[in-house]
């Protein structure tokens, strides 16, 4: 009724409560609709790995490690693989895969929302440059130096996998030819 303070107060409280409820549910960092609220379109997903699910472990393959000599007499060899591949366990993402040759890191691959990682042979151009070495320098008769390598992969589930091996390079000796200078 007009002039009744209790009625006025009740009506005002109702309006205020409705406004507060709309304000709470309509607030969103990505909306610019003013007082008119709508279902937020922004979707934020935090990727997490399950902690209580048994799944196949992370695995990796480093196929056909190779050392080859491109030009005889240069002393330069290159190490490469037919391909490198790693796969995360179910529900996990690949964080990184690294290539280390003789305890020296040569490549770092970062995962990006991927459950597997594949690196073909020509991704590194001609490969990783190393010294071929003189015959027998790697312990194998007639061959050059031996290089130890490690391929290590990590996943968001905490799994780590390593492939370790050694590759023997062809021997190569650098030959320096002195110019033939005749006395005048």
């Amino acid at each position: 009724m007009i002039g009744n303070p209790r009625a006025i107060l009740a009506g005002a409280l109702t309006v205020v409560l409705l406004g507060a409820i709309l304000a709470v549910f309509g607030a969103s960092d990505s909306q610019a609709s003013g007082l008119v609220t709508s279902t937020p379109l922004g979707v934020v997903t935090q990727i997490q790995s399950p902690a209580d699910v048994e799944a196949p472990a992370v695995s990796s393959f480093s196929n056909s490690p190779t050392c080859y000599r491109q030009a005889a007499g240069s002393g330069v060899c290159y190490i490469e693989w037919s391909y490198l591949y790693t796969s995360a366990s179910s529900g996990s993402y690949i964080i990184s895969m690294t290539v280390t040759i003789d305890d020296r890191l040569r490549a770092y691959h970062a995962g990006f929302f991927q459950t597997a990682m594949y690196v073909p042979s020509d991704f590194y151009g001609t490969g990783f440059k190393v010294t071929c070495g003189i015959p027998g320098s790697g312990g194998v008769p007639g061959m050059g130096r031996t290089y130890a390598y490690t391929i290590r992969a990590r996943e968001t589930g905490g799994g780590v996998t390593s492939n370790t091996g050694a590759v023997v390079c062809p021997a190569d000796e650098i030959k320096i030819h002195l110019p033939l200078i005749q006395k005048p």
Partner: peptide, 25 residues
């Protein structure tokens, strides 16, 4: 409270339709 809602919407920010994060990515 209504003014706070309007203020937080950032007039100079682009409208993010979808966003995902994974570590640094």
């Amino acid at each position: 409270s209504l003014i706070r809602v309007a203020y937080g919407q950032g007039p100079d920010e682009p409208d993010v339709i979808s966003r995902e994060t994974q570590g640094e990515n």
